[in-house]
Design a protein around this nucleic acid. Structure first.
Lengths: 194, 194, 194, 194
DNA sequence: CATGAATGAGAGTTCATTCAT
DNA sequence: GATGAATGAACTCTCATTCAT
């Protein structure tokens, strides 16, 4: 595939991303994407066979571009508490946005695709985030920033709450205050007074 | 609407429920339901205009039949802790089942329907559950069964974790052990040693 | 299926027949038939799933309507020779027509469909015709009309020649005289002077 | 056209031949051939405009390579009977093979192309074969190998039977024994005891 | 010459929805 | 009320054919 092809594929993925943001996953058709991209009917099929394949490419791109969710939270001399708080703030932004989010599409995609566990990227990301938070808490406790006895349990609890907030924001709607309240609760549990 | 009509409508809703369980909400067609019910194409339109209307009826039926989620958890001389634990056990059952659950369909339905907040039953149920748990915790603390300072915050935390577990069970898969672990964590936070 | 449905199905089969006569089998599309019938796109699918199914119905109709190829050749006091000659004359008509014939379509249909032998109607009809001709020859010989030693062999020879004429008429073109010549040859072999 | 071009054209024709063997004529697409040849889509169009043109080239190649069907049957001091028998044996091989044969494709090609009679190579080949067989029979009779009165009629009969066997082998299936039986019948008619 | 991306026509198929009976 | 035939819009997918490189 030539350089131009790569460019076009990228263009399709980026354009399709917006379509998935707007319509979720299940109801997006090849035609939707063709029209959004302004390319020909057959043209899209040169690059992708179906919407699932396109969505997989969108997810791949997201991962490559966003990199580690924690990366941006890590500054030079940041303490564990700083990093965790920054991470939660990032999550909040995402949660409150609601629109311009792939969240719905991702959930719908994973509803449909009973992938074997190994390939379930969602689970991998979740578990990896739990691990990182666990280590952050541990570091925070050692530094006297946090008070916590069950590092792993607390890390998991945080992640499940975030998932809960995410699905709640998509299905029930959620205010910035509500998110703040939950973040406060988490931090308070860790003995942080902000 | 005659008695027979009421019966038939009920029959449709019950049959449709199973279809939604199997296919979620978005991809269910009127045809799917017509076929599942074994009625005529036109016949279905006498009772419902579209799948959203049918699904709304399914949800209504669920609520009427299940009544309060806590109702069944309340026995004669049950303590607050008993009730809370029973409630969590019920949730676990639901979570582990994964199949034969309306969860996916419900999420998909609320993804699509940006209902005005007031009508969002999901939110109402969530808030109401939070309230009840809050009161349970309060009662438990008074009875010396629980140790907790922020009743409302803890209640919300519990509910968000449950939502998180629910969406995780549908998109990542989740084991009975994983659910147990989270329930344990919650109870431990309340100072309960089971 | 109601009476009207049966009528419509018959109408479709009859109309489709003409399409197959004109285009053979392989290149006929569902659209061709929809247009020939003047019905809606989806309407055809209520009755048939694909062109092969329609063609099978056409063949079935042909068999039901034409009945035995020999039936019409059999008159009251016809001798074996009369019947055979009549049969051959019928075949000639068919051969010379070339147009308005399903021959091409039938060949194309059986090219594609490697049906298990049992279901190959073409073979059945061929074998059955051989049997009948064999008996006709036998009767003719007994009546002193024919001179022949190998009844079965001659019957088969006749049928293969007819097949040969049929495919030749479709692929090379054939004149009425050429057909006559072959019929004469066959009859001469049987010692018939016409 | 340069030498390389000639080579490439030949390569295309040879490769396409196999495609026609496998799929017949009507359903073969330019894409099929492009893919079988492993050349570019546009590349094929530099040499051929459509599948009919390619198939014509395949037929031309066949004729050039196979030369006279009788050529290989003619040995040094072979008698007329030897040659005829060898020819029939060759035909049998072809008939029994069924697969790896262009027969279907040829029939389909001539179904579609109502070529003016003059250009119908199929007919030419048929007529030429009849002529040769006629002369063989004549020679055989003169040599006392055959007993036959109507040379031309018998020659035509033989060729039509072979055509009949050919189409039967493609549409009804035919066993080696069935072919043998017909060949025996022909030879017996000529008074040959094998 | 050769490539292969791109286009757009066209065939297949499925369904929501209507309507005569 | 009920039925189910009929319609037509909407999608999916495949190719012949062209054309810039």
């Amino acid at each position: 595939m030539g350089d131009k092809s790569v460019q076009k594929k990228k263009y399709i993925v980026e354009t399709a991303r917006q379509v998935f943001v707007e319509k979720g996953f299940k109801t997006v058709t090849m035609k939707d994407i063709v029209e959004a991209c302004g390319i020909s009917r057959g043209g899209l099929y040169l690059y992708f066979e179906n919407t699932a394949q396109i969505f997989a490419a969108v997810l791949k791109m997201e991962r490559e571009e966003n990199g580690d969710v924690f990366a941006e939270s890590i500054k030079e001399d940041a303490t564990a508490a700083d990093i965790l708080i920054l991470f939660l703030k990032e999550q909040k932004k995402e949660l409150v946005r609601k629109k311009n989010t792939l969240t719905q599409a991702i959930y719908e995609y994973y509803f449909e695709n009973n992938l074997p566990k190994k390939e379930n990227v969602l689970k991998k990301q979740f578990d990896s985030a739990v691990k990182i938070i666990e280590r952050l808490i541990e570091a925070g406790v050692e530094a006297g920033e946090f008070a916590c006895e069950d590092f792993a349990g607390t890390a998991r609890n945080i992640m499940y709450v975030l998932e809960g907030l995410k699905i709640a924001s998509q299905t029930m709607g959620i205010t910035a205050e509500a998110v703040d309240r939950e973040i406060m609760y988490i931090l308070k549990s860790l003995g942080v007074e902000e």
